[in-house]
Computed example of a mutant assay.
Amino acid sequence: MTAIVNRAFAWCVYAILFTASSLTTAAPLGQASSVQDDNKRIVTDAFDRWAAGGTTFFNDLLHDNVVWRIKGSGPSAGEFRGRDVFLERAVRPFANRLSTPVRPTTVRLFADGDHVIAHWEGDGVARDGKPYANSYSWIMLMQDGKAAEVTAYLDLAPYDDILRRIPLPAR
């Protein structure tokens, strides 16, 4: 009987040690790290670098062949296929009309599977000294750590106003 009790005790100790070692190597709350968590971290890190003054946000985050859709009914709404096309036709014409770049000031991120949603506020100053402020929501489909598709929602009126009001600087 003593041998059975000792063997049972040994198995209990083994089970406790195995469980304890498993818990110390697991992700918080006992959940394994997931693609969803990784995607959210990648987007969070990119926004953090941008907010701190970084200038490589779109290159860091977007697939080379991203499909970027700006929803709405203004002249700037539309679809851009490829990171370089998006940067050349949407980002640079806008950014070149600013004296201080748009920076994210408040960012809330939500992740669901392969999608990350960024809701953020952005502020900058136009070349004529007037402030620019907008609220954005981007829905990003992530693949291999990069955004492969983005659907962007923003108030196009202030964005289009900058494009209309401020001439492109001479090269």
Rank of each mutant, 00 (worst) to 15 (best):
M140T: 05
R83N: 04
L61Y: 03
F110G: 06
V107A: 12
A152T: 06
K130W: 01
G78N: 01
T56S: 15
A90G: 10
R108T: 08
L62I: 09
R97Y: 00
S76R: 09
S73V: 13
I70A: 06
A152M: 10
D64H: 13
G122D: 15
K71D: 10
G72E: 03
H115L: 07
V150R: 07
G145W: 01
R92L: 14
E149R: 08
I117L: 14
I70Y: 05
R108Q: 10
L87K: 10
A147N: 04
S99D: 02
Q143P: 08
K71P: 06
A95P: 06
A90S: 14
L154R: 11
R83L: 02
L109H: 00
A133W: 07
Y136V: 08
P75I: 12
R108A: 10
L98R: 01
D60L: 11
E149L: 05
V125Q: 05
A148I: 08
M140N: 14
E88V: 08
R69S: 15
S76T: 04
E79N: 02
G74S: 05
A111S: 06
V107F: 02
L62P: 06
P75K: 14
F94T: 02
M142A: 03
T56L: 13
Y132I: 07
D114R: 11
S135C: 12
N96R: 13
W68P: 11
L61I: 07
P131C: 05
G145P: 00
A133Y: 08
T151K: 13
F86N: 11
I70M: 11
G72H: 00
T105F: 02
P104C: 14
P93N: 00
N59C: 11
R127M: 07
L154M: 15
L61N: 09
F94V: 01
L87V: 15
Y159I: 15
R103Y: 08
D114F: 01
V67N: 10
S137M: 14
A152P: 04
T100M: 03
G124C: 02
I139P: 09
G78M: 05
D84P: 06
L98T: 01
P131I: 06
S137G: 11
T55I: 11
V125K: 07
F58Q: 13
Y132N: 12
A157Y: 03
G122R: 00
R97W: 00
N134F: 04
G72S: 03
A133R: 15
V102A: 08
K146I: 01
Y132Q: 09
H63D: 15
E79M: 06
F94L: 09
D144F: 05
A90Y: 04
D128R: 00
G145I: 03
I70R: 07
F86C: 12
S137I: 15
A147E: 04
A95G: 10
Y159C: 11
V125L: 07
R103G: 14
A111R: 02
G74A: 06
N96L: 12
P104Q: 13
P75F: 10
Y159W: 04
E121I: 07
D60V: 08
D123M: 07
D128A: 03
G74D: 02
L154S: 13
A90Q: 12
S137K: 09
E88F: 04
M140P: 05
A148F: 10
N65C: 08
D64Q: 15
L156Q: 14
S135I: 13
I117E: 12
S76F: 07
G129D: 02
D64T: 11
R97P: 07
F110E: 07
P93D: 01
R108W: 03
R97N: 01
Y132L: 09
N59S: 15
